[in-house]
Nucleic acid binder design. Structure first.
Lengths: 361, 361
DNA sequence: CGCAATATTGCAATCGATTGCAATGCTTGT
DNA sequence: ACAAGCATTGCAATCGATTGCAATATTGCG
C-alpha cells in the first residue's frame, strides 16, 4: 500500500508544483524529490549526499552532486532551516524618524553598515537590513519573536533607552551601537564618547582657543556624552561654559549650516567649533567661509568619526576617530556571546585624536 | 477521544520545546500550539485569529490576540513562509574584490544601499544584504535557487557582463545597477553615463579648458561609458585626445592621489580633471593642493555622483548628479516587474550637471 | 418545537527537507 | 556454503504553521 500512496503523490506533487506562485509562472522550483527521482534514489539519499554525509556511497554522492549542479538545484534553505530549527540570520536595524522620513545618508552610519556586513559575512551570518520606525521599537522584538532573525544589532540608541531595556528584559538578543548609560540592561558597543569629547576640546584649548562652540544633539546619549567630555575639558582648564555656544543640532548637514549662520547673526563670538560628526564639521566649515570667517585663523574646527573623506577635505579635518572597522567586529562578537547564553559586557572602543589642519598646527 | 490525544500531545510538545536549540537555553520558543492550549482552542483557530480570518468569532479572536500579545508571541515566519511557499526577501548583493578584500566605503555605493533599503521597505520586502566574491557570481544564483531570496539586486556590474548574462538566462530574477551594454540579457538600471561624461567634459571645455584629464577605471562599463562621453565632447569641440591624460584609476581614494602625483611627476600639462566619482575628485583636489596647484585657476575639476558632501566641500564641487533616490525605487520597480513575469526594460536615469565652484564660475 | 441555514471550530494533510531506525546487499572468515 | 559484520539505502516521522473539509454550535423561521 505504500505503492498506492506513491502513485497518488506523483500527480499530487505535480499539481502543487504548478500553483505555488504565479509570480514565477515559468518553471516551478526544483526540489529534492525531483533530484531523487532523476537519480533513482530516495530523498534521504539525496539529502545525505548533498550534505556530505559519510553514509552514502562515493559514487552515488558524485552522481547526485553532478545532477544537482547541472540542474542548478540548491537545497531549499527555508525548509532546511525549518526542519533543523536553525537560523543564521541577524537583523541589523537602522531606526528612522518617521516624522522627517529621513534617509540613510550620514557616511558614518553607512560605513558602520559596511563594517557590520563584513563582520557578519566573515562569521557566516546572513544580514537582514531593516529600517524601523524609531517610535515603534517593539517591531524590533518581533523580528526575534517571529524567528525571522536570531539576534539583532541596532545602530544608534537615539532616545529609546527605556524601550531598549524592555527588549533586553524580554530576552531578545540585542546589541546596540551607542553610549553606555546608567541602569542599562542591554549591551552597548560604542566609542568612548566622553574621552572623545574631552580630547577634542582639550586639543582646541591647548591650541589657544577660548570660545569653543559645541554642535550636537544632546538629546542623543552619544552626543550628550561628547558634551560631557567637552564640559570636563572646559572645567579642567578653568574655562567658563557659555551656554550660547552650545547648539543642539540634529545629525543633519543642513542643521550645521543653520547653526553657524545663527551664531554669526546673533554676533556671538567664537573661535572654535567642536562638532559631533565630520559631516557637521565639514558643513560648518563650508558655512564659515560663506560668512567670511577664516578656518583656523578665525575659527578652528574639530569633527568626530574620521570618515574617509576627512583627510581629503580642505583643509584636512582634525577629528576624533571612531574605530569603525573594529566596531562591526565588536558588535558581532558581543551578539554571538549573547546568543551563546553569556552576558556580553558593554564595551567602549578607544577614540583617538587625529590632528590634521582645521585646528591649526 | 480528542481528549486522550490532547493529553498525549502535551508532554510531547513539552519535550520538543526543550531540545530545539541549546543556543537559547532559557525559554524555548513559544509556538502556536502553546497559545492554542492556553486559549483552549485548536491551532487552526489560533492561526485564523492571528491572520484576521473572518471565520473566527470576534470574541475568540480578541481573546487569542490578547494572549499572544501578552506572551510576546509572533507567528514563526519561517514556518509560515515554508507552508505558504511565500517569501518576500530580496537579496542586495555588493560584490567585493577578494584580492583587496576591499571594504564598502564609497559614499555613493553606501548611499545606494540606503536608497534601496528605503525602497524595499516601502514595498514590504525584506532586504538581505550579501557580500559576495566578485569572481564567484554564481553564488548569487544560489541565493535564488535555494529560495533564500526571490529576487536579486546587484550593485555594480564590474567586469562580469558574461556571468550576468548567464544568470539572466537561468531565469534568476536579477536587476543590476550599472551600464547598458550590447547583447545584454539582464536588466540594468543606471544613470546615463555617456551623457554624464559628455556634460562634464563639455562644461570644462566651455569654461576654456583644453587639457582635460580623465580619471576612472575604464575596465568597468560605467566608467567606460563616461569615458565615451568624454571622447564625444572632445571630438565635438575638435580637441585632440591625449592618451597621457587618460588615467585608469580604480574607485579608491588613494588611487586618485597617486594619479595626480604621477601626472605632475611626469610633467604632463593639464588644466582640468574629470573624475568618475566625487570621492576621486575630492581626493584629487586635495592632492593638487599638495602639488601647489590652484584648483580652478590652474586646474578645474568635475566629479561624478553628487554625494551629499559635494556641496559642502571646499571649493564646492562641480559634479554630475546621479539621482540616487530615484535609483533605489527604479531598481525595485524593475525587479518587481521581473518577478511578475514581465520583461523589465533597462532604464537610463537622467544625469544632471551641477555647477558649483571647482570648475570656475 | 423542529429543521434548515449559518457561524464557529477542529481534524488532518500538507509544505521540503532531515534523520533514527529498519532493511537490504555485499564482503569476509571459516 | 553460511553467518556475521559492514556498507548503503529507504521508510516514515518530524519541524510549525495553514486550510479544505467535516463536525458541531447557534440562530432563525415556520
Amino acid at each position: 500500500m505504500p505503492h498506492a500512496k506513491t502513485i497518488e503523490c506523483m500527480p499530487n506533487s505535480t499539481r502543487n508544483k504548478l500553483k505555488p506562485q504565479d509570480v514565477n509562472a515559468s518553471a516551478s522550483k526544483l526540489q529534492m524529490a525531483d533530484i531523487a527521482r532523476l537519480a533513482g534514489v530516495s530523498t534521504a539519499t539525496v539529502s545525505r549526499a548533498l550534505n556530505k554525509s559519510a553514509l552514502v556511497n562515493d559514487a552515488t554522492r558524485e552522481r547526485i552532486e553532478q545532477l544537482a549542479r547541472s540542474l542548478n538545484y540548491s537545497i531549499n534553505v527555508g525548509a532546511k532551516n525549518f526542519r533543523l530549527g536553525h537560523n543564521r540570520t541577524i537583523a541589523v536595524v537602522v531606526p528612522y524618524d518617521v516624522a522627517t522620513r529621513q534617509h540613510l545618508t550620514d557616511p558614518f552610519f553607512l560605513g558602520m553598515l559596511g563594517s557590520i556586513a563584513d563582520a557578519l559575512t566573515d562569521r557566516g551570518f546572513d544580514m537582514l537590513l531593516s529600517r524601523v520606525d524609531a517610535d515603534k521599537l517593539d517591531t524590533v522584538a518581533q523580528l526575534h519573536d517571529s524567528g525571522r532573525a536570531i539576534g539583532i544589532i541596532l545602530i544608534g540608541q537615539w532616545r529609546h533607552h527605556d524601550q531598549l531595556n524592555q527588549l533586553a528584559q524580554r530576552n531578545v538578543p540585542v546589541v546596540v551601537w551607542g553610549a553606555q548609560l546608567p541602569r542599562q540592561l542591554y549591551c552597548t558597543i560604542g566609542s568612548d564618547n566622553v574621552a572623545g569629547g574631552f580630547l577634542a576640546t582639550e586639543h582646541l584649548i591647548k591650541t589657544g582657543r577660548k570660545c569653543i562652540a559645541f554642535f550636537g544633539d544632546v538629546n542623543l546619549p552619544e552626543a550628550a556624552q561628547r558634551f560631557e567630555g567637552y564640559l570636563k575639558a572646559l572645567s579642567k582648564y578653568k574655562i567658563k561654559l557659555d551656554k550660547k555656544l552650545c547648539v543642539s543640532v540634529p545629525f543633519l548637514a543642513e542643521s550645521a549650516r543653520k547653526a553657524v549662520h545663527d551664531l554669526c547673526k546673533q554676533q556671538i563670538h567664537f573661535d572654535a567649533i567642536f562638532a559631533c560628526s565630520d559631516l557637521l564639521a565639514m558643513t560648518a566649515i563650508s558655512t564659515l567661509r560663506d560668512e567670511h570667517l577664516r578656518v583656523v585663523d578665525d575659527v578652528a574646527v574639530v569633527g568626530y568619526d574620521d570618515i574617509e573623506l576627512a583627510r581629503y577635505f580642505h583643509p584636512p579635518l582634525t577629528t576624533i576617530r571612531q574605530p569603525i572597522d573594529l566596531a562591526g567586529r565588536a558588535l558581532v562578537e558581543a551578539l554571538v556571546e549573547i546568543l551563546e547564553g553569556a552576558q556580553a559586557a558593554p564595551r567602549l572602543l578607544p577614540t583617538q585624536l587625529i590632528v590634521r589642519s582645521t585646528s591649526g598646527m
